[in-house]
Amino acid sequence: MAAAAAAGAGPEMVRGQVFDVGPRYTNLSYIGEGAYGMVCSAYDNVNKVRVAIKKISPFEHQTYCQRTLREIKILLRFRHENIIGINDIIRAPTIEQMKDVYIVQDLMETDLYKLLKTQHLSNDHICYFLYQILRGLKYIHSANVLHRDLKPSNLLLNTTCDLKICDFGLARVADPDHDHTGFLTEYVATRWYRAPEIMLNSKGYTKSIDIWSVGCILAEMLSNRPIFPGKHYLDQLNHILGILGSPSQEDLNCIINLKARNYLLSLPHKNKVPWNRLFPNADSKALDLLDKMLTFNPHKRIEVEQALAHPYLEQYYDPSDEPIAEAPFKFDMELDDLPKEKLKELIFEETARFQPGYRS
């Protein structure tokens, strides 16, 4: 834990890192770190609560700039109880001085990944967590956004079992017609939660990839272990087919990539493993919904509104309290091709509203 900075004593240090967030945020305490930044909790002297502050230093890398800009653009436009918001952003007053960006968010005690390492969940908890994931996802999908990296560590939890989806750095506007060349190379989302079509096709992607990830998360809540822990690309596919069985001819016809289709045709026939054999203690309604989410063919996979209306979630289902976005989200430009200098300018502009004396 960093010592509390005395008023006016300059930035606090946390594990050798400068955290320049005073005077409003003090009493910093280390939480963890990701690929390009550290997260601390801090005391907000204005709202009198502890908050989470993520320090991001992305400006050396085009990919990190892209992810940072995506996350900020999306989260500043989203407003939903099951999606983490941005409360404040701290950065230098000029673009030349801006080396880091500090993002202030609600402090959540833990995440689903940490929880599943230590606790076996009751059916009631599984049901409530799944409902909140789908409630947040309904809003995301209504904005025409794909999260693309749903996994237990991106689901934040607090002691009252509130759940918030975080990390929109890989999110995209849904565009089933656009052929994202190089899709697989830039697709760094965790393999275990990846839909089979991501490994088999490169053309376009749809909201059904997020539903697949939610199915993987439900299976993990039922058993405290990942359902498809593939060691590499082909191993991942083999794990999936080992449980779902061989795809039907109709399902194979959806695979545009001939090499991928021929690979699947070359494999020995596998039978589907019954879900109640894998999860003998699970609620039968939970397994019915799991089956509809972990469907090989993305066109037959359940959609988020149908999933919310499934009998497993009937005690929570309330369409009048499951809000959607006001308007579909649009990125003005494809960020993939922009140089990091341009992305830095866009991050600077996007964060201006939090600067003292800002006038829109």
Rank of each mutant, 00 (worst) to 15 (best):
M98I: 15
P247C: 01
I209F: 14
K73P: 07
K285Y: 09
Q249F: 05
L146N: 09
D20S: 08
K285N: 14
H232C: 03
P319W: 10
P11L: 11
V21D: 02
Q62E: 10
N123A: 12
I74V: 08
S29D: 00
K272Y: 08
A5Y: 05
E303K: 11
F19I: 15
I89M: 08
A174T: 13
V18A: 07
I84Y: 03
C254K: 03
Y205P: 01
A171T: 13
A4Q: 05
E349F: 00
I243A: 02
E96C: 02
I90W: 03
D251Y: 15
T26E: 14
Q315T: 03
N257K: 14
E109A: 04
L290G: 02
D175P: 02
Q315L: 14
L308I: 04
Q315F: 04
L234M: 14
I217G: 01
F279G: 01
L107N: 10
Y102A: 07
N224E: 11
L222Q: 14
V49W: 11
K114D: 09
K73W: 04
I347L: 13
P311A: 06
D251K: 01
Y139S: 12
S266F: 06
I240L: 13
E303F: 01
Q17H: 14
H178T: 09
N45D: 08
N238L: 12
R70G: 03
P23G: 03
M108E: 10
Y317A: 08
C127W: 00
M38I: 15
I165E: 06
E303D: 14
L244C: 04
G182N: 09
R135D: 01
S29E: 03
C166G: 13
L264K: 04
H180Y: 12
K151Y: 04
F19H: 08
I53Q: 14
R194H: 09
G34P: 00
T295N: 13
N27S: 00
F59M: 13
Y193T: 01
E220A: 12
L237P: 10
S29A: 03
Q355W: 05
V14T: 09
P93M: 03
I74H: 01
P274W: 01
L150F: 07
G22M: 09
L237T: 08
K292W: 02
E341T: 13
M98E: 04
P58E: 13
P356H: 13
I243P: 05
G245H: 06
A195R: 10
P311M: 00
V173K: 03
F296M: 05
Q119R: 04
P226Q: 11
P328D: 00
K342D: 04
K54N: 11
D106S: 00
R359Y: 08
N158M: 10
F279D: 05
E322H: 00
L157C: 03
G245F: 05
S360L: 13
I255S: 10
H232I: 02
H180E: 10
L156E: 09
F329L: 15
N87W: 02
N297H: 11
I95C: 09
C161F: 12
A6Y: 12
R301H: 01
A92L: 02
S41N: 13
D291V: 14
L343A: 12
N224Y: 15
L170F: 04
I140N: 13
R172D: 01
D100M: 15
Y263D: 00
T185F: 06
L287S: 08
A42L: 08
E314P: 04
Q17I: 09
Y187H: 09
Y317Q: 00
T26L: 04
K340C: 10
G169A: 09
V104Q: 10
L76K: 06
I86E: 01
D337W: 10
L267S: 06
H310P: 08
H232V: 01
K259I: 11
G85D: 14
L146Q: 14
Y187P: 00
E12V: 13
D291N: 12
Y187S: 11
N123P: 02
I211V: 09
M108T: 07
I95H: 03
K54I: 08
L264C: 04
D283S: 04
F19A: 14
L287Q: 15
P319M: 06
F78H: 02
E220N: 02
D179G: 09
R24D: 10
Q66P: 13
L218P: 01
K55I: 15
L170R: 04
K138C: 10
T351E: 12
Y25Q: 01
D336C: 01
T68Q: 15
G357Q: 13
L75V: 12
K292G: 10
P176W: 05
I256T: 02
E305F: 10
N144L: 12
I302E: 03
D321L: 02
T185D: 04
L267I: 03
N82R: 02
I165A: 02
M199Q: 04
T68A: 15
G357A: 13
P23W: 00
N27C: 13
H120W: 03
I90H: 01
L258I: 07
G182A: 09
V21Y: 05
I83T: 00
P328C: 03
N262D: 06
V49D: 12
L112H: 01
V188F: 13
E326A: 13
H180M: 04
F129G: 02
C166T: 10
I227K: 04
I240R: 01
P176D: 08
T190P: 13
A4T: 13
L343I: 11
R70F: 02
L335K: 03
G204F: 09
L313D: 04
G169R: 05
E334H: 00
R148H: 07
K330I: 04
T351H: 05
P274K: 01
D291F: 06
C40V: 08
I227A: 05
N276F: 07
E33R: 08
C40D: 03
R194M: 04
K272R: 12
R79L: 12
S208N: 09
Q236E: 06
R225T: 00
S284W: 09
C161V: 00
S153A: 05
M98Q: 11
V46N: 06
G215K: 10
E186S: 04
R67L: 07
Y233V: 07
N262E: 10
L146P: 00
K117P: 03
L252H: 13
M293V: 00
D251W: 00
W275G: 00
N123F: 09
I126G: 07
P58M: 15
N271R: 08
P176L: 11
M13E: 12
K138P: 09
D124P: 11
I89K: 02
A327P: 06
V188A: 06
L258P: 11
L69A: 08
S284C: 07
D162C: 00
R277P: 07
D124R: 00
Y64T: 15
D20E: 15
C65S: 15
A260K: 02
P298I: 01
D332E: 13
R50H: 10
Q315V: 02
K117Q: 11
Q119T: 02
L130I: 03
K340E: 09
I227H: 02
V173D: 08
H180S: 06
D318H: 06
R24C: 10
E303G: 08
G10A: 12
A309Q: 08
A174P: 05
E33W: 01
A5N: 11
P268N: 01
E334R: 00
E186V: 13
I56C: 07
I347P: 06
F129L: 14
L241M: 15
T295W: 03
T160L: 08
L69G: 07
N123Y: 15
E96F: 10
A286D: 10
N257Y: 15
V21R: 03
N154Y: 14
H232M: 00
L115P: 03
D111T: 06
Q119S: 07
Y131T: 02
Y30F: 14
S142F: 08
F59G: 15
T181Y: 05
Y131A: 02
Y317S: 11
S122Q: 09
L289G: 12
S284P: 00
L237D: 00
A7T: 11
D124Y: 13
G182F: 08
N271E: 10
I347W: 15
L146V: 06
I211P: 05
A260R: 01
F183Q: 10
S142R: 01
R353E: 10
Q105R: 14
N224S: 04
N27E: 03
E12W: 08
T160E: 05
D336Q: 10
Y316N: 15
N47L: 14
D291W: 02
E186R: 07
L335S: 08
I255P: 08
A4R: 10
D332V: 14
P229K: 00
P23E: 02
P328H: 13
A6T: 13
V39Y: 11
L244A: 04
V145S: 05
K300G: 08
H61S: 09
L294W: 07
R277Y: 05
C166Q: 09
A9Y: 01
Q355D: 10
